[in-house]
């Protein structure tokens, strides 16, 4: 009999106990981020869209169009057209990544022997068409002007 009363008491007390928990959160801090106005502080290693690193002084990138990244890419999302300049050095003319295919794994960055690639903090990559998903790797979106 006492056991039953105890059980009933426990059952009844569990309801206000749960309500107290929600009440605690009612007066607690809200965690929502007001998205377009507020932004995340992205960590250093954030893996966004892949781009070529451009040297700040010379404004040139280190890419030699060797194609290692193309071979490393698991989903064949990179496309490269290269040419040879007057010093007989190969350089990329058109270098694009299809963000619809990209897995954002960073294997291309790892595979680059010249550390010419990085992944930037660009995450708003939604596009209205497949064509718009294909984005240039040159940091300002232009083709190489060498």
């Amino acid at each position: 009999m006492i056991r039953i009363i105890k059980e009933i008491y426990k059952a009844l007390i569990s309801l206000p106990a749960g309500m107290l928990v929600t009440l605690k959160y009612l007066f607690g801090r809200t965690v929502t981020m007001q998205y377009p106005e507020e932004r995340w502080i992205l960590p250093e290693r954030f893996r966004g869209r892949v781009v070529l690193i451009r040297d700040e002084k010379t404004l040139k990138h280190r890419c030699t169009a060797c194609g290692n990244c193309l071979r490393a890419c698991p989903n064949a999302s990179l496309r490269l057209e290269s040419a040879v300049d007057q010093n007989k050095k190969r350089y990329p003319v058109k270098f694009t990544v299809d963000t619809a295919l990209c897995l954002f794994c960073g294997l291309c960055v790892d595979s680059c022997p010249f550390n010419a690639l990085k992944m930037n903090k660009d995450y708003e990559l939604a596009a209205a068409s497949r064509e718009a998903c294909v984005r240039s790797l040159f940091p300002d979106g232009e083709n190489d002007d060498r």
Binding site: L42, E44, R45, F46, R47, L103, F104, G106, L107, M119
Partner: peptide, 12 residues
């Protein structure tokens, strides 16, 4: 996870 590897779901 994001601070360690740069992604929130597909870590690799």
């Amino acid at each position: 996870f994001e601070s360690a590897c740069g992604q929130r779901l597909t870590y690799s």
